[in-house]
Amino acid sequence: MPTGADLTALGVTLKLAALATTVLLLLGTPLAWWLSRTRWRFKFVLEAVVALPLVLPPTVLGFYLLIAFGPHGPLGKLMAAVGGPPLAFSFSGLLVGSVIYSMPFVVQPLQDAFAAVGRRPLEVAATLRASPIDRFFSVAVPLARPGFLTATVLGFAHTVGEFGVVLMIGGNIPGETQVLSIALYDHVEGLEYGHAHWLSGGLLLTSFLMLIAVYGLNRRFRVLRP
């Protein structure tokens, strides 16, 4: 059976994943829209930056974030200047890290979905007197719905599964930064394999079910590209 600490970790994990996914959809949608429409010749540089977490060891990302979050790092200084909470070893820091780490899982499906919508439906909407904002919400978003589903599920699932970044920037504070993957690691370290099975099995099943849902509901989209 899961322990009380496990349930606390579950709560932190779900809260983190939900918040990170929300922030990612809010930031990722305009970014993906812009990437799908722009003819800027250097857009591939930005695409590479977005895709970086796919190939970078999470500990590398975590390390740089830790430096940036520190009292002398740029983000740490910024937060201190605006009177915000410290980022290192805090839930807020974890949220920032998760957003960066899961960025490609949200931006790429959205970008592909927007690209698949094409220009024509938006041109039609323009000739039917829909303003650019109106076109975006009344045509682009509904037609890109499969992409939003994929982005939401992948962003959420990937945040639930992160480990390296959390370990580097969040530490292991129960109720604040201790997430499921860290709790699992603790169980294994403590040779509590029974508890480890509960968490691993649960995560495996949940992840599998989420992917089944995504692939089953929209077969048209590639889920990720390197």
């Binding site: 024509r120 439906p121 041109e123 039609v124 909407a125 323009a126 000739t127 039917l128 007197r129 829909a130 303003s131 650019p132 109106d134 076109r135 045509v139 037609l143």
Partner: peptide, 17 residues
Amino acid sequence: PHRRALGYVFQEASLFE
């Protein structure tokens, strides 16, 4: 275009699917 009172029919119907 969205401020021009016109109607445009494209070669392919291009309905909102």
